[in-house]
Design a protein around this nucleic acid. Sequence first.
RNA 1: GCAGACGUAGCUCAGUUGGUUAGAGCGUCGGAUUGUGGCUCCGAAGGUCGGUGGUUCGAAUCCACUCGUCUGUACCA
Length: 567
Amino acid sequence: MAKKPNKLKARLPRGFLDRSADDIRATDEMIGRIRAVYEKYGFDPVETPAFEFTDCLGKFLPDTDRPNAGVFSVQDEDDQWMSLRYDLTAPLARHVSENINEIQLPYRTYRAGWVFRNEKPGPGRFRQFMQFDADTVGAPGVQADAEMCMMFADTMEALGIPRGQYVIRVNNRKVLDGVLDSIGLGGEENDERRLTVLRALDKFDKFGADGVRLLLGEGRRDESGDFTSGAKLTEEQIDPLIKFADFESILKGARYSNALDDLLGPYPLPFQEHPTTWSDPESVDSHTQAAWQDKIDSLSALVELPSSVSDCWNIENLSIFALLFDPNEKIIEGLNELAQIAALIESSGYSEAQIKIDPTVVRGLEYYTGPVYEAELLFDVTNEKGEVVQFGSVGGGGRYDGLVKRFTGRDVPATGFSMGVTRLMTALKNLGKLNSSDVVAPVLVTVMDGDVDALGRYQKMVQDLRSAGIRAEMYQGNWKKFGNQLKYADRRNCPVAIIQGSDERSVGELQIKDLIEGKRLSEEITDNITWRESRPAQITVKEADLVETVRGLLDDQAEDRRRQSEG
RNA sequence: GCAGACGUAGCUCAGUUGGUUAGAGCGUCGGAUUGUGGCUCCGAAGGUCGGUGGUUCGAAUCCACUCGUCUGUACCA
């Protein structure tokens, strides 16, 4: 006997998703809300295509062994490499550069689009996902960064995430760079190690202070036994970094019982001559105390805290912890910018519960040059299996002053951020915060006779309903199995079915069946004969009353749904 | 990329120390019911046991390789 031909296996590449009607409607809803916020802030849309020349995306030309590592790349007819965009920022920089003469700077713009990354997908991470970006191009001042943070916070709230359930964390690359300089990691020869250190710091949320300490030192072994080699810093370098990054727990006494003792204690600072304790000022010799006070005074003179900034913004604490290092110009400049951002945000009425200065934020290792910010969800997200998922950030951004200059040679400072629409939607969906759509399935006009005249009459009913603004359709399957028509209507959640056979037709009537009410009534009927013959929730009306009756039923059902959702 | 776990029907899974013709539930389709959704009952279809090679009289089962999925980790512009 001949082998049956192998069936083609239907399969989807991993990391890609088919989107359901509910998903699409929910995404549209989200995008609408985000867009409304951006528009209100005075931003205009712009759209760029999915493909760009690979070099314009800022990616080096693909190497021949693995041309698709990280990005999806193809070669055009003329052998030039093109790639699917992996974010919306690099294409924007290209667009601005190419149209720099027509664009009025500062250019305030937003856009939503699919981006593609050829890397291993994980929970809530896909190879195609949607981002929604906003950028201000040609604005050098921190006020532009501050505005981005505020708009970010407004967007989160517009999406229905209540205050306290999200936070926008703000940091400044200049502070981080200055800190790394001061522990001897400045200069080009340390580029690689700086990256390793920043990556390690970025994992603070995931692995905590102890894990980060390992990554800064020799390395860390994960639970599968795989080993990640570390930055191989010395204890003297690691200690202040950890304390700087973890300063909030230190202040709260959460991690170190004698926190401020530690601050002074175990590693030599230039001004520290004797080990001492800070928590008990009596035990500190006057010389050391004075040295510290000098340091703090001189730092306060350098970091101009605007008078309007209150303590809650962490600037002062951050400044004190910057003393762990020898504060250089970069640190001072970075702290000043953060202080100004805090002042601007505060005077606009935002609180620390919404936007927070946080030295552990590391983003965009490649191109960010100043303030960086990211949005994090603070509620637990559970997946389909009911497990709590580490969700991390749902969007972020920062200042990228060099990106346009790559093309134009002109200094065009810019700042902007990106919302991860797909990620956010996964979170909101799992949280049940997405109002599953209000779209009601269509009214079904059933088919009792299949001749052209009859079909014409059914189609006319459908058109009458549609003309009245009611979603409606005629059954398109095998009409001879009438039971299947109602089964179809039931599974589609059709609210109402219209039935007209020759009996009704001959007296100018039709049957209108309320499928929702009928389903409710059916719960009390166990016997099939009764169920079929009682024809629950079914009424007979004149043909002319079709539209009016259906509209009445739909209104009643909508009212019921509204009441139910209210409790 | 690295490490680990797992691949049996459309889905969720069972399958004994290697032993005849690989099973169940759900779902699908048909019928009981030519004009009424649910329930119930009867019946049917649906499998290269991920693939290739090997050990064996005999492999879903043991071995090797390979592909795929999942988890952790790396990368994440």
